[in-house]
């Protein structure tokens, strides 16, 4: 494997897969897997934190639910039904809220995976290994996605038991398909944030800003039509808006989407765009940081 050596240097053997081939891909996948396992181990080493994070999604959901129900004095909203064909406030909010945690995956878990290593002091040690730096970020993505999925399942069970949800069981599979397409674009987004958080000192503010903007521009607790037209158009650049509309079409009885279009094509285009853009910026910041020598600074 000692290819491309500088002319005349025939030295120690190096056995490390590189380039586009199956052995190398397998090695990178294993690095992603091990990174996600490592993230679990570290997370579980802080049990109090882990517990708190486990209940927090439910806590954030509650005000949306209670507030919504107080507003309409029950769980039926005439106005909502006029807009999207279904008036069940609880089901509407819950189906929207499900993706909130996954926005968190992209923005916080992935976005701050590299920053976290900086905090642990291990970043340089990781960056001198031949594994791609992306694998570290993707390892975190895997960890956080699994984590969120478990959390969402528990949340679903609790809300279902307490309120009951009017969902079409048959729609779950196609909704999952849309979900996966959404996640791919969010991963691209997460890669972008992880790059930004490495070069910007106040990276958390950028992340918080992106998080809030994505939240406002997504039809999480209201249909898209209540947004001003400009905002509705802007929401098309985030995968969450088309994905939510699409998932609700499959999951909720009588749901008439507020914006119509080819959701699958839209999501595929967003996937390609966000992943490529994310990787590009990631690559550029990697070079920038190695030139500046600001890798280990927190």
């Amino acid at each position: 494997m000692n290819k491309n050596r500088v002319k005349g240097h025939e030295l120690g053997e190096v056995t490390c897969p590189t380039g586009f081939n199956w052995t190398n891909l397998k090695a990178e996948l294993r690095a992603i897997w091990e990174s996600s396992i490592k993230a679990w181990k570290i997370e579980l080493a802080y049990p109090v934190s882990f517990l708190r994070q486990s209940v927090s999604p439910l806590i954030i959901l509650l005000p949306f639910l209670i507030y919504g129900m107080v507003l309409v004095g029950g769980r039926y909203s005439e106005n909502l039904e006029r807009m999207v064909g279904t008036g069940d406030v609880v089901t509407f909010i819950f189906t929207g809220y499900v993706i909130m945690g996954f926005i968190g995956t992209a923005v916080w878990a992935m976005g701050f995976s590299i920053r976290g290593e900086q905090w642990f002091g291990t970043l340089e040690s990781i960056f001198v290994t031949p594994t791609s730096r992306l694998s570290l970020v993707l390892g975190m993505a895997l960890h956080s996605t699994v984590h969120q999925s478990i959390g969402t399942a528990v949340e679903f069970a609790i809300i279902y038991a307490v309120f009951g949800l009017g969902l079409k069981i048959g729609g779950i599979l196609p909704a999952l398909g849309i979900f996966v397409l959404m996640m791919l674009a969010l991963y691209g987004f997460g890669i972008l944030v992880s790059a930004l958080s490495l070069v910007l000192k106040e990276g958390w503010i950028v992340a918080e800003g992106l998080h809030s903007i994505m939240m406002i521009l997504s039809p999480v607790v209201y249909p898209l039509v209540v947004l001003p037209t400009v905002a509705q158009q802007a929401s098309a650049i985030f995968p969450t808006a088309p994905a939510l509309v699409g998932m609700r079409v499959f999951l909720i009885e009588n749901y008439q989407p507020e914006v119509i279009g080819n959701i699958f094509l839209h999501l595929l285009a967003l996937d390609a765009a966000w992943i490529l853009f994310g990787i590009l910026v990631f690559h550029l910041t990697d070079i920038y940081v190695r030139k500046k020598g600001s890798l280990e600074k927190y």
């Binding site: 949306f64 919504g68 507003l71 309409v72 004095g73 106005n79 807009m83 607790v221 209201y222 209540v226």
Partner: peptide
């Protein structure tokens, strides 16, 4: 930014700026 979703949610659910309930 954190309360904007609540404002919009309210408008979507009651269709106005006042909610009798």
């Amino acid at each position: 930014f954190w309360f904007i979703p609540f404002v919009l949610q309210g408008q979507a659910f009651v269709g106005g700026l006042q909610s009798p309930s």
